[in-house]
Every structure is written in structure tokens, then in C-alpha cells.
Design a protein around this nucleic acid. Structure first.
Lengths: 344, 344
DNA sequence: TTTTTTTACGAAAACGTTTGCGCGAAGAAC
DNA sequence: GTTCTTCGCGCAAACGTTTTCGTAAAAAAA
């Protein structure tokens, strides 16, 4: 079951030329006469010649493919990012190999090693919720594998990074709740080891501070698996709801946490926003048809993917070692809907 | 910026052996003495030797990668399928290269050619909504490229296929609406060239017939781009709503169509299910938090992806040409929620 | 001791490219 | 008429493997 294609050799034989002549003719080398080039090109087109990318990769030492590690593709934020990655990669003739860590540290290590041994030319990564140490990535980076981080990034590796303005997004989301008159605002977020968790927490705190509200540790609930385990979110939510001074609003820090929280509240028959208001980070395309429609901090996911890919390809194709790295921070957008509106 | 790794040559040099000896030792050949094998293995492990997959591919003529063409990754059904594909592929040590047709015939052609020239060992495809002819795929299939179709399949290529039981799914969805007392049930569906469109339409018709309701052509609205173009859905919906004997229920045939329809109805301030009921094919993980929660025909997306991948790898690794092909039909599940319930 | 077999390894070709170099022929410069 | 360029092309090595075949030396059989 092999798929046979025409090779340079076949062309050479057919045209009574040498392999090298054909190769050069195809690449338009000045060493070859116009006439010969024309012949070769014509024959190649006619027989639909496509260079074997594997042979080219072997020769050039570049595979023209990039690896992607995200926690989960089945998620509006990440699928949109991948959409962006794919569009830029395709345009620049790179292949994209996608892998999922499922928020597992083990799988992230396995995937990164598998991808590098599969000789991808570079890596685009968003860290898993379980990841606390990045030695596995440092090792690869030190060996010269270009990488770009997005969303969940690390300070321990000097390279390009692309994130949304998590601080500002969280600040605006929280401030909006404050402005609506909510006072006991809880925050359900991911693993404390993630960069986004910290940044969003800071934005949340600052919004409280600016409004003269005191920050209360008890209103912060961590879900170490970022919502992948429903029970974790359930537990967090239950604890919040059983408090004496139970929160009157919740600010959730990720896509999965937001939808899960809303779903759980609905199951518990708790009215949103009447009994408790909700603002969430989410890129769900259906936030407007949720019950209630969900006020969302939306990240520019597509752009993040595109930008990350652009930066990675820059790194890959750089002639000389790159030493200046960018940390690009893209704006978020607050989409206000019913879930956060104070009942009149 | 190249990523350097240890090769067989390096091992050979270090151990004063020939390249061929090292290669055989690594593969455990009986031609090599136990002692030498031990040395080589030890050295290889110590220096973390990984065979260069590109060189192996070139040699073997197999790339250990499979290509995927779906219309859109940013869609709960397809991302779940890809989830399934990825899990099986990874387990069998295949790479997955994902491409999107965005429901465009042109892009489907471009992607299929790009993937085959990228020498994937096989293809997993769900046809785009625009696709009416599959010559581009026939060409590749005839050349010996193994492929498996899922969801949107074609009869014109003899190979394995994986689909959900679209007829039964549509039948049950429609019958449920009938049982709830709805009589004028419209059907918004995709391009008429898609297999799923026909199958679902048949299920819909049969359910009407079995209930003694007459099928009316005017209640069928096609969206040739499968919901990718919002205006198309808008148009279809508007036409339905302006009828004299306007439908009292809608059955939507795809993920995107379902969410878009619900969103539009909401925007038009039409109460679901009071003014019009809704049942949709969808794999949205959030169907339960929609307003109203959406009655859904759910496809076993993950299983479909896994099964398709299993079948494809069987084809790829088959010793002799395969002539018996399977068409696997997986069960759908009807999840009844508020959007289809007759008000008391 | 001679012949045969076995063992353990190396040489080389192959996969399909790319590329530095060499070389003969034609033309230009002297 | 000799030397120097330039042109157009082919040779061969290289990328990292795998695999066929050949072959020394050691072991076994005669």
C-alpha cells in the first residue's frame, strides 16, 4: 500500500539529463540554460511533479512543520487559537502537528519529547495546569529548538511570548461587577502555577482595591486542573455557596470553568444573576445563547495563534541567533450580557 | 537555528563500529553479538539517541503521519472527532496533520493535494459543504493513498466509512417533536450534496410519514454553506417565520446551524419553545446551559474519530490490498431538554 | 589437516533531494 | 593563435537510515 509519485530521477531519465541538472532547473538556477529549464518545467508540470518533502527535509535539516501543545482542543479558546496557527502556518507552507496535554504534566513532557524527536522545526506551547517545572522544555530550548509560548507562559525560558492582557481583562470584568453593585465577588480560577492565574488574580484584586473593597482570601477558589475535572469546580462552588456571607457574584477565570460553573448553578437551580452574578473568561461562540447570556472577557484567540506562529517562524528562519525576545500583550474585550446585570 | 541530535554515525564513531552494525544492534538483529548490542544500547540510552524519523520515512517510504481534512476545527463535533483521532494516532505512534476546508471546495482540493504531497500515509476526511465532485480524492485514492471518510461521506470511493446513524437520529428528533404535539415542523439543513443532509432528511420525512403528517417541501430550508455564513441561516429562518402557516417547530441538521438558529431566534425575541420549538443535531458541551436548554441529537464524535483512525491505520498497514470495506454506523443519542417541550 | 559452517561484522547501495566542484566547449580578450 | 572567461551541464557527496551482500575469523565437521 504505497503511494508512488514521480521523482527528479524519473524526469532526468525521460529528458536524458542528469539529476542535478533537473534539480537546478526546477529551482531556476542560473547555471541552467533557459531552454533546458523550459523543458524541465514543462515536463514537471505535465506530470505533476511535487518534490518529496521528506527528502528535502532530510537534506535541509528542516521539516517545515511546527508542533503545538495545548491542554485541550475541545475548547473554544484553544480551537480558535489553533485556527489562527493553522492559517498562518499553511500560508507559509508549514505543517501543524497538534497534541493535547489534557492538563497533565506527564503528557506535556511526553508530547514535547515526541514532537522534538519527530523533528518539528519549532514548538508553540501553552502550559498544562499541572506543570510546575519546565525543565523538559528548557532542555529542548537549550538544544536549539525554537519555541513560542502563548496564554500560559513561563518566565524561565527566554523566547517570544504571546498573551492576552489578563490583568486588564480581569480588572475590567471585576470592575464591571463592582459597578453593577456587587460587593462579595468570588473568583474561581485555575492552578496557581499558571501565569494566567496570577495575572488574572492581580487584576481582580486591583479592581477590588480601586473600588475600596477588601480582598478576602476565602473568596478565591483554585481548581488545579483548570476545570477538566468537574468535581473540582463543583467542590469550589459548593464551598462558596455554603458560606455565611456567601458571594453575590463570581468571576471565573477560564473557558471551561465558566461553562461548568454556569451549568452547575443551573443544576442547583440558583438564579443567575438574581441570586448570584457571573462574569467569565470565555471564547465560547455561544455565550449569547446561554441562560442567562454570559458576560464574557473574550481573548483575541485567533490573533494570538496567528501572532505566535508568525513569531515562531521568524525564530525558525532567523539567519543568526535571536537574542531580543518579545512579549506581546493583546487586548481583551468585555462583552456585557445578562449574567452580570444587577436586577433593578 | 538548527536542532542537532545524535545520530547512528556518532555512535558508530564513538564505539569504533560501523554504521550498519550500530543500526542492526539498535534493532536487535541476531547478526550482532549480545555484547556489542549491550554496548550500543547502553551508549544510545546514555546519549538519548532517537532515530531520525525523517530519514526513516525516506528509507521506508512511509511517513507515520496521517492527514485530516475537516470543514472547521472550531466546532464541537469536529474538535471532538479530532480528539478521538489524535488519541488513537498517538497511541499507534502516528502524527496527525490537521487542515480545514472551511466548507470550501477549493480549499478541500488544495488541502488534499498538499497533504498527499506532504506524503501522509493516509487521509481522514469529512467532505466540505461545497463539494459536489470528488475527482480530486478519486485521483489520490487511485494512486494508492489510503483514506477513510467520516460523517460527510461519498459513495464514489470504495473505502472504509464511519458515520452516525443520521437517519435514526433525525427520525428520533423529529418524532420527539411530533410526540410533543408539534405539527408544522420545519427542517433547516446543509448543502443538498452532503450525504448527511440526505440521510437526515429521510429520517425527518419518515418520522412525519409514520405520524401521518404530510411532508411539505416549503418547510425544508437548505443552507449550502452549512451555517458558516450566518446570513444564509438568517435568510432561511426569516422565510420560515414569514409563512402564513408558519412552522411551530424547527429541526436543525448540524452543530453550527443549531446554535446559529437559537441565537437568531433569541435576537428576534421569539420564545423557544413557546412560539417555536427547536431540536438540533449538536455536540455542544454547553447545550444544557443554552436558553432554553437545547434538545439535541448527539453524535458519538469521539468514537467516530477513534474508529476512523483505527480503520485508516489498518488500511495503511495492510500487507495486501484491502478489498472488503466497512461502513460503520454508530448510534446517536437524543438528549431531551427544554427547547422542544410543549408548553402545558 | 582440510573443508565446511557459523558468527560477527563492514562495505555499499538505496530512499529523493541539494549543492560544491570540475570540465569540456564556445566565445572573448590578448 | 594562445589564454582567459563564461556557459551549461554532470559527477559525486551529503542528509540518517535500512538492508543486502560479502568476508574475515572462529568454530565445527570431515
Amino acid at each position: 500500500m504505497k503511494f508512488e509519485a514521480i521523482t527528479i530521477k524519473d524526469i532526468a531519465k525521460a529528458l536524458h539529463l542528469s539529476v542535478s541538472t533537473v534539480s537546478k532547473a526546477l529551482r531556476g538556477s542560473h547555471e541552467i540554460s533557459e531552454e533546458t529549464k523550459k523543458h524541465v518545467l514543462a515536463y514537471a508540470n505535465e506530470h505533476n511533479y511535487k518534490p518529496n518533502p521528506i527528502a528535502q527535509s532530510l537534506k535541509r535539516g528542516l521539516s517545515k512543520s511546527i508542533g503545538v501543545i495545548v491542554c485541550n482542543i475541545d475548547n473554544n479558546f484553544f480551537s480558535a487559537v489553533i485556527n489562527g496557527i493553522e492559517s498562518v502556518a499553511r500560508q507559509k507552507d508549514y505543517n501543524v502537528i497538534i497534541t493535547q496535554s489534557q492538563e497533565s504534566y506527564e503528557r506535556e513532557i511526553a508530547n514535547s519529547e515526541h514532537l522534538s524527536s519527530r523533528s518539528v522545526d519549532g514548538l508553540i506551547i501553552s502550559l498544562s495546569a499541572e506543570t510546575k517545572r519546565v525543565d523538559h522544555l528548557i532542555k529542548l530550548h537549550d538544544k536549539g529548538l525554537p519555541m513560542v509560548f502563548f496564554d500560559r507562559i513561563t518566565d524561565e525560558i527566554a523566547t517570544h511570548k504571546v498573551i492576552a492582557d489578563n490583568f486588564k481583562g480581569a480588572y475590567e470584568g471585576t470592575r464591571h461587577l463592582v459597578q453593577q453593585g456587587f460587593r462579595r465577588i468570588a473568583h474561581i480560577t485555575s492552578s496557581s502555577s499558571l501565569s494566567i492565574t496570577l495575572e488574572r488574580l492581580e487584576g481582580y484584586k486591583k479592581a477590588l482595591a480601586d473600588a475600596g473593597l477588601t480582598f478576602e482570601e476565602k473568596y478565591i477558589k483554585l481548581c488545579p486542573h483548570g476545570g477538566m475535572i468537574k468535581e473540582e469546580t463543583q467542590q469550589a462552588l459548593t464551598e462558596l455557596l455554603q458560606m455565611k456571607d456567601r458571594p453575590d457574584a463570581i468571576f471565573t477565570a477560564s473557558d471551561r470553568l465558566s461553562t461548568t460553573t454556569l451549568s452547575l448553578l443551573r443544576k442547583m437551580q440558583i438564579e443567575v444573576p438574581q441570586q448570584i452574578a457571573l462574569v467569565g473568561f470565555t471564547n465560547s461562540i455561544s455565550a449569547d445563547i446561554f441562560h442567562p447570556s454570559l458576560t464574557a472577557v473574550v481573548q483575541p484567540a485567533l490573533e494570538m495563534g496567528q501572532l505566535a506562529t508568525d513569531l515562531l517562524i521568524q525564530l525558525i528562519e532567523a539567519k543568526r541567533p535571536v537574542t531580543e525576545f518579545q512579549k506581546r500583550v493583546l487586548d481583551t474585550e468585555l462583552q456585557i450580557r445578562d449574567s452580570s446585570l444587577r436586577a433593578k
